[in-house]
Design a protein around this nucleic acid. Structure first.
Lengths: 337, 337
DNA sequence: CTGAAAGCGCTTACAG
DNA sequence: CTGAAAGCGCTTACAG
């Protein structure tokens, strides 16, 4: 059997209270007592039992990580890297991150993740677009939560945001500076605020550089569904066939951009000579496509870490005002521009 | 504050023992008492507190899921789907699956996942190739564990295996039946037993159909590193340039096959007219490549579920003899053959 | 600076 | 069929 705090106390000739104090670095313990206890802990390789500690402190030591099923199973990995970032951060304070998925048609009565049903988390990170009913539930039940790469218009929730606007702006400006005059946009679901912001960055960069004519609706292709390669292909086909003068495409993300690449290749246009292509996210595949994709790097691990930190601060200080943290992005130039 | 078992007992006019009995469906409780208690539970929306229950039962209610960092961050998703399968299964008995990664250079002294350090799991699933030192540790410490898509030669551990041999055999036989006479093999790391088995299926199918001449070393390309598109590209280039008669390539997995596709296309050969290509795994991308990839489907979710079930049985019955469960695969014909 | 005691919210023999 | 009591392994005021 694994040793308990009692074994340590006996072996060190002190009470369990004192052992607990050194374990938690609280109160004052005489230096020699402390070091004696510490060496016994070492010797017996003692670790406090999580569930006992949790029961006593009335904390769970867990954070939930909830993601829409479709996002988790996506072909390209993005949110799983964000999870990994949280997991890395959690290692340092021995928190556990419980990852689970929810379906699109979410009903709190029947679909509540079990760690919420059993109030088995101290807080929750919501990755990407999640059901509104879930957010409402957390809000009503006063479960601390942070939205990651998502937001609810008009609501002031804790969130970690990607600097979509500036990223898009930079990307388009880069295209303009290399002489592109006819820059199109291909995108997916406007349900997702990120896509909206990226579109805004696109249009404002055009405005700034006097390329207003690019802003005609003819230069944009969007479908109100989850982004995919297919949208990229269809969009590029449509745009380039109707407007052969287009010499660059800014895509709402890399997945879409990969679709655009295949379409452009099928149309026998050269990349980047005839058409430059810019993505967003820097998913791993972006580096392996041919040509390799220029894109805006979103630091996924860092986002996860930041989500963890915010959540942790939140439970230390429950009355903290909701805040938004913006994560900076970085331009990555490869072969497609 | 959330209600406790005491609140339920008071409200129902019984002792907490009785409430506990109905909660756990144990012993005999008079039907009317039971239903009274149940309705109070309903009414107060009571949920037993995990950590209290865990402390009392001396179980953790957690399983660990350990995967090599590189596998988790792989471009193509495979193991994360296996995780999802476990998570699905775990929902039904309120187990939690704690996902974490380990580095290649693993040292139990310093790199032990925290849930092992704190003995905070009842068992562990190891996905794919994991450090030998980790397996040894679990074995020595008598932590119940199951290997998923991995095995240790000469050791009789619990494992969930994919039927690699038969899958490969079927794939190659399919190629032969459609008239292919010169079938090459492209593969990666032989460290992984799965690759070995797939290779064996390949050679034995050739033997059975009297295509022994295919078995010359000239028809195989392998590198002892993690599989990747790059290996596929290099392999296909090498093989097809030296042996223009090759009319089919069986790849050790889809990732490799995607590389083979680009190489074949670069060589201006038609798929499947000139060269048929067969993959293995059925990763999501296989369906989106062009041409779409024929492959052997590995049921990832089912593997995860089976891993969960085996682990669960293991902790119910700790003296169970180690066993191997083989998961059947399925041939998926698409455009590349 | 340290210990005795109560308490966290459950489960589980054991009586009756 | 039900309840009183002990116990799981910790933490945390409170005395001293």
């Amino acid at each position: 059997m694994a040793p308990t705090i009692k074994d340590i106390a006996n072996e060190a000739g002190v009470s369990i209270s004192t052992v607990s104090l050194v374990l938690n670095q609280k109160g004052y313990v005489a230096p020699q007592t402390r070091s004696r206890i510490e060496s016994v802990i070492q010797k017996l390789n003692y670790r406090p039992l999580h569930s006992a500690r949790k029961l006593a402190t009335q904390q769970t030591g867990n954070f939930g990580f909830i993601i829409w099923e479709g996002h988790f199973s996506e072909v390209e990995l993005f949110y799983s890297q964000i999870f990994l970032g949280m997991e890395y951060a959690a290692r340092h304070n021995d928190y556990y991150i419980l990852l689970t998925t929810v379906r699109e048609e979410f009903d709190p009565k029947t679909d509540l993740p079990r760690f919420l049903r059993y109030r088995d988390v101290d807080g929750v990170a919501l990755a990407g677009r999640v059901p509104g009913a879930l957010i409402d539930y957390l809000d009503n039940q006063h479960v601390p939560f942070v939205l990651v790469d998502y937001e609810v218009p008009g609501k002031n929730f804790n969130c970690i945001k990607i600097d979509n606007y500036n990223g898009a702006f930079q990307a388009v400006e880069t295209l303009i500076k290399t002489g592109r005059k006819h820059i199109a946009f291909v995108g997916g679901s406007f349900f997702h605020p990120s896509v909206k912001e990226r579109y805004r960055g696109y249009t404002e960069a055009l405005d700034k550089h006097g390329l207003k004519h690019n802003r005609s609706e003819d230069y944009s292709y969007c479908e109100n569904i989850e982004t995919s390669r297919l949208i990229g292909e269809k969009g590029a086909m449509r745009l380039l066939e109707n407007h052969p003068e287009i010499d660059a495409v800014f895509c709402c993300n890399d997945t879409t951009a990969l679709g655009v690449i295949s379409a452009v290749q099928r149309l026998k246009k050269r990349i980047p000579e005839d058409v430059a292509i810019f993505g967003f996210d820097d998913i791993p595949t972006a580096e392996f496509s041919s040509p390799k994709l220029s894109t805006i790097r979103v630091p996924k691990l860092e986002i996860g870490k930041e989500a963890y930190k915010l959540l942790y601060e939140l439970i230390q200080n429950p009355r903290m005002a909701p805040q938004t943290r913006m994560i900076a992005v970085e331009t990555i130039l490869r072969e497609s521009t």
